[in-house]
């Protein structure tokens, strides 16, 4: 996470987190496959899910993860964990500057690409990538089982 000269490099720090997210997410039972996308660029992690484990009767379900550690070592990260499936439904937990809610943390969802997103402010238990990954799976499970 630190340049050889001891400085903070947001590209290095963010890429390291994305590699670790790709590695760790495979431990979750609902995960079929995880890859760095776009191929070669690796600016996000795309996770293919097993919909039936999440209680969804759809053919395909995906979780897309973006993570940026921030411009300086003590900045807040910017991230998004966004779920979508072949029914057209999508929802996500985001933490980034946005015009929809006060503050950075929010949840957004819509039933189909033709609908407008509904936004709500949320707070997270942790802003560390790996603990948060498991928190998001918990939240996703709650959201999908409640739908």
């Amino acid at each position: 996470m630190f340049a050889f000269g001891g400085g903070y490099d947001p590209g290095r720090a963010s890429h390291t987190v994305l590699l670790e997210l790709r590695r760790t997410v495979k431990q979750h039972p609902a995960v079929q496959h995880a890859s760095g996308e776009p191929s070669g660029q690796f600016t996000r992690v795309t996770v293919m899910l097993v919909p039936s484990i999440l209680g969804r009767e759809v053919e395909e379900a995906t979780l897309t993860i973006r993570w940026y550690t921030g411009e300086s070592a003590n900045s807040d990260p910017e991230f998004a964990f966004h779920y979508s499936d072949s029914s057209g439904f999508d929802c996500g937990w985001h933490y980034e500057p946005n015009p929809h809610v006060n503050g950075w943390g929010h949840f957004q969802e819509r039933e189909s690409a033709d609908d407008e997103y509904r936004y709500e402010t949320i707070t997270f238990g942790s802003l560390q990538p790996i603990p948060l990954l498991w928190e998001i799976f918990d939240r996703l499970d709650d959201r999908l089982s409640g739908s």
């Binding site: 987190v17 238990g125 560390q128 603990p131 498991w134 939240r139």
Partner: peptide, 27 residues
């Protein structure tokens, strides 16, 4: 009691959890 903790503990060892957190700190 934080969300996701029980599932994480079930699927990753203590060593792996410590490793995952430690290799992703920004400071």
């Amino acid at each position: 009691d934080s969300p996701g903790a029980e599932s994480w503990k079930k699927h990753q060892s203590a060593f792996d959890r410590v490793r995952s957190v430690a290799v992703t700190v920004s400071e």
